[in-house]
Write a protein that binds this DNA or RNA. Structure first.
Length: 262
DNA sequence: AGTTCCCTGAGG
DNA sequence: CCTCAGGGAACT
């Protein structure tokens, strides 16, 4: 669930606590979050200085004096600058001043170190808030349903299920529409919708639909503005018809059949 | 390009 | 009890 706006919010809330700090000891406990040798990873990180904290797509990039620590929150991951260690705490970074905890009940997230940046990050498409319309449109020319393409991180980095549904509704485009056959005008509507919604969600600190919180444990408020996501059967805010839910790319997909055309 | 699978809390 | 939620990698 943490998508671009939530990850951006985490990055912003964690940055001041990490910059210039040194990792004294690190400890990991999940074979899913940290595949491979957890001990070697911990040894790799001990003594490292944190020089930068950034984001690329849904990945959190922590630049060290040696290599990069790349964190993905998966579905239920949280980075916290305070709190207690429990059974779901799968990463503990003891800093020379403070602590950083990685908490992830479902363990869909990941923590990895790499000397020159993660290859997973290298495969990402452009940032939605930086991509030009011309590049966006060229990238749309693929044989896929538009919703599936929005979820594809090599097409565009950072859009997940919630913001894909919200963007398609705002653009009036059916999730099953063929991406390649969107007219220029409709492609432009989608481009504008994705960017506007992501920017607005960042302003509101992201969406807290389940248990998402930023690094200080604060909730986001964009869920209040969701117009289709999680509103199956409820009236469309635009036409009053029932919001429908179907499965696209194995993801729950919410849309208004009257307001969103193929 | 579509399907399956990893995991666990929440809800039926 | 059982099913569902979903990001992304591996598979078909």
């Amino acid at each position: 669930m943490p998508e671009l706006p939530e990850v951006e919010t985490v990055v912003r809330s964690v940055r001041a606590h990490l910059l210039g700090k040194r990792i004294v000891i690190a400890k990991f406990t999940s074979r899913w979050v940290t595949p491979g040798s957890r001990k070697k990873l911990a040894e790799r990180l001990a003594g490292r200085l944190i020089e930068s904290v950034g984001r690329r797509g849904k990945f959190i990039l922590i630049g060290l004096d040696q290599g990069t620590l790349t964190v993905h929150l998966g579905m239920t991951g949280k980075l916290l600058v305070a709190g207690t260690v429990d059974t779901h705490t799968h990463g503990v970074f003891t800093l020379d001043d403070g602590v950083l905890l990685y908490h992830d009940p479902r363990q869909f997230g990941s923590i990895e170190w790499s000397p020159g940046g993660s290859p997973r990050v290298a495969r990402l498409g452009p940032e939605p808030l930086e991509v030009t319309f011309e590049e966006f449109r060229v990238r749309l020319r693929r044989k896929a349903r538009v919703k599936a393409l929005l979820l594809n991180q090599s097409f565009l980095a950072g859009v997940g299920n919630i913001y894909a549904d919200e963007s398609l509704f705002a653009a009036g485009i059916h999730p099953l529409a063929s991406a390649a056959s969107l007219s220029r005008v409709r492609a432009e509507r989608l481009y504008t919708a994705v960017r506007g919604i992501l920017a607005h969600a960042i302003e509101l600190g992201g969406s807290s639909i389940s248990d998402y919180v930023n690094a200080e444990g604060e909730r986001g408020w964009f869920q209040v503005e969701h117009r289709v996501y999680g509103r199956e059967g409820e009236p469309c805010v635009n036409c009053g018809g029932a919001v429908r839910k179907i499965l696209v790319a194995q993801r729950g997909t919410h849309f208004c059949p009257r307001c969103q055309r193929r």
